[in-house]
Design a protein around this nucleic acid. Structure first.
Lengths: 334, 334
DNA sequence: CAAGTCAACTGTATCGTTACAGATTTTGAC
DNA sequence: GTCAAAATCTGTAACGATACAGTTGACTTG
């Protein structure tokens, strides 16, 4: 019973065509040691000829291997803009492998643990990538406890070794202070990430180290952070610029926030480069085009995607987590 | 042989717990008519209690249903920025269903048919969503021929009925011309999409209809289109602004392009709103913040994602394609 | 009360793959 | 020439689900 020619070929098809057993074909394609060299060659040839792809459901059912990496994504528009270049980086790496990329979303109103639990409980993926990492991130704790492969965009403070990729936000803020001081600025304001995210601490400590080393002072700006709406940031910035001890230097922890800060500064009747200098972390080109006065240090999200995808796959293959931790550094744009 | 308590429950687990047969449990959970009401209730209760999720590999192997929608994505950075809000819209809809979203990428250097063929040949998904639709799109032709469910972001000219969602680019360009003429502009330049995409024709014909109806003339701008780099667009725009018959009104087919046009206009020493007015299609807020003089008509990509996801699922469920074609309209921003 | 009807339930085979435990043939040693 | 070891190859069962073809027992019906 040869399977019809226009149906998807299976191991059975190849077994029939070569006159071998199904098991032999399976093992030949896996390059198993107990199959003859010539047989392997024949099987590979026929498989290529008929365009054989192993049936994912069959493999998954038998072995439990899904060949899926799940990217867990917050659906808030503000974050998705940042994470989309990451999708490109992840896809670039996965394209060279058998893995598929599945987007597992969650909304701000729901528990961020939900998608992780879903993947763990249903076995929906072999590995997971998460963002918006917290110092005591419960998602990390849960996946470590279950010994499930994952990578985080950002570090944790749990005393547990897991794969991560992080941008050096300490250095970013430190360099940013330096650049502002070099331009004669001394009173510096920082638009920081929300306090519960790990990189808040990194950015703050780089900021404070910079203030000490370069002899500048901090202008408090604590009513808003990068999770606030651009409109809120704009208003808060204008207020800060009109206050008695207004800053003459501003650091923005993201490109989106920088746009709002620029608008706030100009609302206050001030002019960039003349009255105030600004350093921003930047992922897209827009700000660079419209306000070239803003000094931008680039964070490469695409690279982050590539690193994380490679790390998760290596972790799945058993490589120790400590070898899968990478850091990238701010690059001055232009 | 009761399965261990901390393993994933299967139909067998529930069958053992209820004392029923596996088949009965399966059919009870599907609400089949030949199962008693009380039995169904008991089965549902136990299933919920143990947190039963059907094993996707089992279902997929037996039925061929993957419960996957594949979003086919070009990995070029310029496009991914636009498509990312679409991912949000798609996810919102899929979250209420059993479907997972898989990203199937392709690069500009490879054949756009490749990912479609891959899905078709491997049965990787139950439905597909594609963008960058062409009038005689070979991907559409192929999927129609194979009777495979899909939705397109953008229309085709193949004379075949398939689900789509499109933005009314004809109306966008027409309205844009009107708004420019209302501001006293008469010599209008259009930054259009690449000619091989369907919406190029829509935008052009709306543009030309507007010129006729409102009595304006066109300034040729054919050396670049929206697929060119921002740097190229900027340079071309500056040149156009310095040429003898320079435009006094500009229309941009995307928000990204508008940023480059603004830069080009300013490179030429001209000022928005004073020397030139501009209407742009806009998906993010950045331009609005930094150049409020630009008139923006919004295209809602998130809505597009929602509409397409719903359409593809409905198509999978057998609804006629002609009922799954939607259009959305430009909205004046602020 | 025999026979037919119906409701409720169940066993078997199967999807495509791989783990495992053979089976068969070849080779080599003495 | 015999026998063990090595080299190749293969059948069966199982992963979890569902289609399909029953089975069982209670209830009508004439």
């Amino acid at each position: 019973m040869p399977s019809s020619l226009n149906e998807r070929p299976t191991l059975k098809t190849i077994a029939f065509m070569t006159g071998l057993g199904i098991t032999t074909v399976s093992r030949a394609l896996k390059d198993a040691p107990d199959i003859g060299a010539e047989t392997k060659e024949r099987v590979r040839l026929v498989a290529a000829q008929v365009g054989y792809h192993p049936n994912r459901a069959g493999v998954r059912l038998r072995t439990g291997k899904t060949n899926v990496i799940s990217l867990i994504l917050s659906l808030e528009e503000e974050f998705i803009g940042l994470t989309s270049p990451m999708v490109v980086g992840i896809s670039e790496v996965l394209a060279t492998t058998q893995y598929h990329l599945v987007i597992t979303p969650y909304s701000a109103r729901s528990d961020p643990l939900d998608p992780v639990r879903y993947v763990l409980d249903t076995g929906a993926a072999d590995g997971v990538i998460i963002s918006r990492t917290e110092p005591k991130d419960p998602r990390v704790a849960l996946m470590m406890e279950r010994n499930f492969p994952f990578g985080t965009h950002g570090r944790t403070e749990l005393g547990l070794d897991h794969p991560y990729h992080d941008f050096d936000n300490e250095r970013f803020a430190y360099d940013a202070v330096r650049m502002l001081v070099e331009r004669g600025r001394r009173r510096i304001m920082l638009l920081h990430p929300p306090p519960f995210l790990t990189y808040h601490m990194h950015m703050r400590s780089g900021f404070e180290r910079g203030l000490r080393d370069f002899g500048a002072t901090s202008v408090p700006f604590n009513k808003v952070d990068l999770d606030n709406s651009l409109a809120d940031i704009r208003v808060a910035c204008e207020a800060a610029m009109l206050a008695p001890d207004a800053p003459d230097g501003v650091i923005s922890g993201s490109g989106g926030g920088a746009v709002a800060l620029v608008a706030g500064i100009e609302d206050a009747g001030l002019k960039l480069a003349r009255d105030v200098d600004m350093v921003s972390k930047q992922s897209n080109d827009f700000l660079q085009w419209l306000r070239p006065e803003v000094i931008t240090l680039r964070e490469d999200f695409r690279l982050a995607g590539r690193e994380l995808a490679k790390a998760v796959i290596a972790r799945i293959e058993g490589q120790p987590a400590t070898e899968l931790q990478t850091l990238s550094f701010p690059v001055l744009q232009n």
